[in-house]
Design a protein around this nucleic acid. Structure first.
Length: 573
DNA sequence: GCCGTTTTCGGCCCGACTGTTTTCAGTCG
């Protein structure tokens, strides 16, 4: 893993934050955040780039930032940053957590009242010391008091797997309203980010009041938080806030681009529009005279800007705009490209449904093959299979293959990688499986070196086909274990092991950026549901979404292979 | 601080909203 890339990116972000508190020129601040983001997104190690003198080839990195990064890489320190920390009180950064407190107000509050923490801010608001400050007043003071109280208690981010189904249901119900021309989820949901801040839905109609009326009376509404002609907001029974925007049909495309984001992607598009002397906003693309050039569809807008339509999953300003202008966007893998699933559990270990039921569900989805991957014996809590049960299950697989032919059931396993890197079944047992996924389920707290060696050892095992959920992260709950993922990646490429993109909504592991990195390094990936029940076969869609965010095409995805080629691949190992 | 098929200097995304203000600054997305 490129730890130094993240380190350098964080350093530059910190500088930007301090500069903003210092009341610096906003464009200089943005230069630092842009450089930070671009360095954070690099697939090459920033230190290697520095050694070959390539720092200023990185977009957004010029002379000044090159010098600063070089100093930091050489010495581990940056004098400029140390000075800045001395001049600006670092703690005042906390004030930016409070909605309504931006850099200017935080700076003022610090300068005038010496306030650096949220509790101090709250106290000052209650004592009515804020209202006295220039540009402040009674209303602003009350708002800041209200927001300061709620900091920390603010609702957390949501899993994509929670937000997306709700947003899709809302959009589908709105589409059923005759006055609605189009309705879709927008924002980070549409980009399929692994976690979501706000649930945004967009609808177009010439009769907004009818749309708002339907929206605010949906059957699962608990509370209407805001109404009004175009921007209503509801709270559902399961406490999810959903914001709707109703817009005019001729603005649908531009509004969808705008509300889908990302912010960085939008900024890049608008800069491009500027180069033509045009203006892009949520209302459309306009020429110098203010005449609308495009706006009704997204494709129209991208075409007018001289590029192909960009799938939402790629809209992160990570090179998609240049690729779209060159007509070299990847032809992203789609959920319909999957021919089967290589990681599902049955009720033989910790799954909910029988093997038969899982097969029937896979056939119903149009799959051609399915691999059971029940847990191995040491994973007692998950009902890991003893060697006898493995043999017994193999006989069942044979019967299922006769019964469901030409559908193919593969006998797989999700075998534990033990703390020393050995696998949880002896070699002769492993040799009997059609496909072996190796995963870590315990002893996560090893040192980075030991964990890396543990995984690399498993990857070199001749019977291992797939590395399951490679970083072990659980979204919103547990970070990835300490591991040198770059070394893991190289070992996987060398030994021909496929890396899993696990579709469980709280895993999505590998994530988007590492999936892209893996593809670039020549690794193959597999989009698996890790279903523990028949309905969860649908989690494959989240794995595919992650793969798409990682720029993957069908050719990079193992389970996009037809059965015969999959079997040839597995046999060749 | 960065960057250039209009520029090595003069720009840098756009609009809505809020609240403080007699024309606009700050924040947000």
């Amino acid at each position: 893993m490129h730890r130094r890339n993240d380190e350098v990116a964080r350093l530059l972000d910190n500088i930007a934050e301090l500069l903003s508190l210092h009341g610096e020129n906003p464009f200089r601040i943005r230069a630092y955040t842009t450089a930070a983001r671009n360095i954070g997104a690099l697939s090459e190690d920033v230190e290697e780039i520095y050694r070959r003198g390539g720092l200023d080839d990185i977009p957004g990195v010029g002379d000044a930032i090159t010098r600063k990064v070089a100093e930091y890489l050489e010495t581990g320190r940056l004098g400029y940053y140390e000075d800045l920390k001395r001049r600006v009180n670092v703690a005042a950064v906390d004030l930016l957590e409070v909605p309504g407190m931006g850099p200017a107000r935080a700076h003022l509050v610090y300068q005038q009242l010496g306030i650096t923490t949220v509790p101090e801010l709250l106290e000052a608001a209650r004592d009515h010391r804020l209202a006295e400050l220039p540009g402040f007043g009674a209303k602003l003071e009350a708002r800041i008091a209200r927001e300061a109280e709620r900091v920390g208690a603010r609702s957390r981010r949501l899993l994509l797997g929670v937000a997306l189904p709700v947003a899709e249901e809302v959009a589908a119900r709105l589409r059923a309203v005759p006055a609605v021309e189009a309705a879709d989820p927008a924002g980070s949901i549409r980009r399929m980010r692994d976690t979501i801040g706000d649930i945004d839905v967009l609808a177009s109609s010439t009769r907004p009041e009818a749309v708002v009326a339907t929206f605010t009376t949906l059957p699962f509404v608990r509370e209407v938080l805001a109404t009004g002609p175009t921007r209503p907001s509801i709270l559902t029974r399961d406490e999810l806030q959903i914001d709707l925007r109703v817009i005019r049909p001729e603005e649908w495309g531009s509004a969808l681009v705008y509300f889908t984001g990302s912010k960085e992607h939008n900024i890049a598009l608008r800069s491009l529009a500027n180069e033509h002397g045009w203006k892009l906003s949520e209302y459309g693309l306009f020429d110098r005279e203010g005449t609308r050039i495009a706006g009704r569809t997204e494709a129209e807008i991208y075409a007018a800007l001289g590029m192909d339509w960009i799938p939402p999953e790629l809209r992160e300003d990570r090179g998609e705009i240049a690729a779209a202008r060159a007509h070299r966007l990847p032809l992203l893998v789609d959920v319909d490209d999957l021919r089967g699933d290589l990681h599902v559990h049955t009720d033989w270990s910790d799954g909910h449904d029988s093997p038969e039921r899982m097969v029937e569900a896979a056939i119903a989805r149009g799959y051609r093959y399915l691999a059971f991957a029940d847990h191995s014996s040491s994973l007692g809590v998950a009902g890991g299979l003893t060697i006898e049960r493995v043999h017994e299950q193999r006989r069942l697989v044979e019967r299922l293959n006769q019964r469901f032919a030409p559908f193919r059931v593969l006998h797989g396993t999700e075998v534990d990688i033990l703390p020393n890197g050995d696998l949880d079944y002896p070699d002769e047992v492993l040799a009997g499986f059609d496909v072996v996924t190796a995963s870590i389920h315990s002893v996560f707290d090893q040192t980075r070196e030991r964990m890396t060696a543990r995984i690399v050892k498993a990857l070199r095992h001749p019977h291992v086909d797939i590395l399951g959920h490679p970083t072990g992260r659980l979204l919103l709950r547990r970070p990835a274990y300490e591991v040198d993922l770059e070394a893991v990646l190289q070992a996987a490429v060398e030994s021909g092991v496929t890396l899993e993109i696990n579709g469980q909504p709280d895993r999505l592991d590998l994530d988007d950026t590492w999936s892209r990195r893996a593809k670039e390094a020549g690794a193959r990936l597999v989009c698996s549901s890790d279903a523990h029940a028949a309905v969860q076969l649908d989690y494959a869609r989240y794995a595919v979404a992650t793969a798409r965010r990682g720029w993957l095409e069908p050719a990079h995805v193992l389970n996009a292979l037809p059965l015969d080629r999959l079997l040839a691949h597995l046999r060749a190992r």
